[in-house]
Design a protein around this nucleic acid. Structure first.
Length: 434
RNA sequence: CGGGGUGUAGCUCAGUAUGGUUAGAGUACCUGGUUUGGGACCAGGGGGCCGAAGGUUCGAGUCCUUUCACCCCGACCA
């Protein structure tokens, strides 16, 4: 893409209401803009990042044997009345009426719809297991949307649902999804932890959360520095509530207790802030029973499906990448999430040799399938560099005054290092880096 | 949903206590010129239903009433 023709409205100042780095930089960098409380438009750069994340999620899920579907976003209220969630979810569900005054809901999640989809279509144990997912818009009418993409009302979430003939098989799938989620977050280049999300009835194994570690995270995690143990402090709070003598224990005291304890593996424990980007949950037959969704077992007897549910906050991940990877100048995208891998910056477009080399490199990289931006605007060096840093291209090739000596520079966004390269070697050097 | 706050140019904000020229600044944008290795400089220019609706007044961005929107702290949640 030529920068001169792109729609990337960057700004020097952030709106006053943006408090978090991801919120500020995504708006300043021209990735997103706000369309109302908890509502966001994705502009070209934001859309590219969103789609990259979505593609990786899809690829890994498909590899794990899941099938993608797409459910209608607008759903009849009756669907929610049958499961009892019309009342249970209350005002969080946005209700709308059509011209006939029939009531509808903008889907906040899709357990009911997915069960209805499978019900009476999958009727035999021979057709199980089955894992269906969608990556689709969700709407939750939050009491207080905030933090930009981290807590919007409208957001993009991948929600998956699996159906099984036995609890054992459901747990097998649950474990498979844990492995798959780890692959996804690793591919995205994120530093994350898996933590037990529920300490209660299911013994802490029935529900796991995936947290991206970032200072601005809303959840506090206790993590081991030696092994991969981690727990959400909420869990500990819940636990303490159940134990009488801990009733008066303050949050700080609780932290001290935890911090002075050792992990089961003997490692030191520490506190980290985390952003919840994934959640996997063993549902059992809660919804299949309520909605009378049965299959016939080996003996021809009807049984409700054993189910599990798996979520990934796709649009939240866009912000999470930045919460974890940024500096005072802007975004630092991981290679897997960068809107463009390489930015070719022409220092002075009045210098014909600079333009010629830039155009040549631009073409070659495009032909090699590299996602590349050509900054061909009539702007000054400093302006373009600030812009490149704000947007966060992993690499910027600076074609400028050193070209007289046959040299160009590669600016590494993450390390902020400038490396001089002979102009004839720039292509191969870039191909080596990415 | 409780408590607090803010709505004036694309963005950041003055102006509102005490009503009174044609509503301002910075930034961004357009034109011309000078610049060209870290968000340049000079000159000129365009841009506003002062959130909305009522009211008080000779006169309202400013006072009164109503309403809408947005933000912050908390409770709640992917």
């Amino acid at each position: 893409m030529r920068r001169s023709r792109a729609f990337i409205p960057t700004t020097k100042e952030a709106p006053s209401d943006a408090t978090l780095p991801s919120h500020q930089f995504l708006i300043r960098g021209g990735f997103i803009n706000s369309q109302g409380a908890g509502l966001y438009n994705f502009m070209p750069l934001g859309k590219i990042v969103l789609d990259k994340i979505r593609a990786i999620v899809k690829e890994e899920l498909d590899k794990a044997g899941c099938s993608e579907v797409q459910l209608s976003f607008v759903t009849p209220i009756g669907l929610w009345e049958r499961s009892g969630r019309a009342d249970a979810m209350g005002k969080e569900m946005l209700r709308i009426a059509d011209r006939h005054q029939n009531e509808f809901v903008l889907s906040p999640t899709n357990e009911e719809a997915m069960v209805e989809l499978v019900k009476n279509r999958v009727t035999s144990y021979k057709d199980l297991p089955l894992n269906l997912y969608q990556i689709n818009t969700k709407f939750r009418d939050e009491a207080r949307p905030r933090y930009g993409l981290l807590r919007g009302r409208e957001f993009l979430m991948k929600d998956g649902y699996s159906f099984h003939s036995s609890t054992e098989d459901m747990i097998r799938e649950f474990n498979l999804m844990e492995v798959t989620y780890k692959k996804i977050f690793t591919r995205l280049g994120l530093n994350f932890r898996v933590v037990a999300a529920d300490s209660g009835a299911i013994g802490g194994e029935g529900s796991k959360e995936f947290h991206v570690l970032a200072d601005s995270g809303e959840d506090t995690l206790v993590v081991c520095q030696s092994c991969d143990y981690g727990a959400n402090i909420e869990t500990i709070d819940e636990l303490s509530n159940k134990i009488e003598e801990f009733k008066e224990t303050s949050y700080e005291e609780l932290q001290n207790i935890a911090i002075n304890s050792k992990c089961a593996c003997g490692g030191e424990l520490s506190f980290k802030k985390g952003i919840e980007v994934g959640h996997i949950f063993q549902l059992g037959d809660k919804y299949s029973k309520a909605l009378e969704a049965n299959f016939n077992d080996e003996n021809g007897k009807p049984k409700p499906f054993e189910m599990a549910t798996f979520g990934i906050g796709v649009s939240r991940l866009v912000a999470s990448v930045i919460e974890q990877n940024h500096d005072e100048n802007g975004c630092i995208w991981t290679k897997a999430t960068a809107p463009y891998m390489v930015n070719i910056m022409i220092s002075n477009i009045k210098e014909t040799p600079q333009v010629a080399l830039a155009e040549e490199l631009y073409l070659k990289l495009q032909e090699a399938g590299v996602s590349v931006m050509l900054d061909d605007r009539k702007e000054r060096f400093g302006f373009k560099m600030k812009d490149a840093e704000l947007i966060g291209f992993p690499y910027t090739v600076i074609i400028g005054k050193e070209l007289e000596n046959g040299q160009v520079q590669i600016f590494d966004r993450k390390s902020k290092e400038n490396t001089s390269v002979n102009k004839d070697e720039i292509y191969s050097k870039i191909m080596e880096l990415i």
